[in-house]
Amino acid sequence: MEILKARTSRVIITVLGKDQLGIIAWVSGRLAEQNVNILDISQTIVQEFFTMIMIVDLATSSLEVAELAAALSSEGRLRGLQVSVQHEDVFAYMHRI
């Protein structure tokens, strides 16, 4: 899948769920272990509902988007969190002309 690697390596991670201790610590810890650089992060809590959006760069990591998605979403599920990991192009195509 060289074609996917050739595109930008930026990926958007979103975490949705009930607020709890250490969500950002968990995600950023996992990312650091895999040499994934965090470019930007935003977080809001609306009525105890936690929403975090993180833009990360996989260029320095050996991890593929699919692997990162699988790892974070299965660990997230155990914590009651819904984690999505999607290539930046999805948002660029959908929201920018």
């Binding site: 979103t14 809001t44 959006i53 948002f91 959908m94 929201h95 920018r96």
Partner: peptide
């Protein structure tokens, strides 16, 4: 490096797929 998407846009996309 700035966030190039509004949070609402990102959440909207996630909603479309998940719900």
């Amino acid at each position: 490096m700035t966030i190039t998407f509004a949070s609402e846009e990102i959440i909207q996309t996630i909603e479309m797929v998940k719900n």
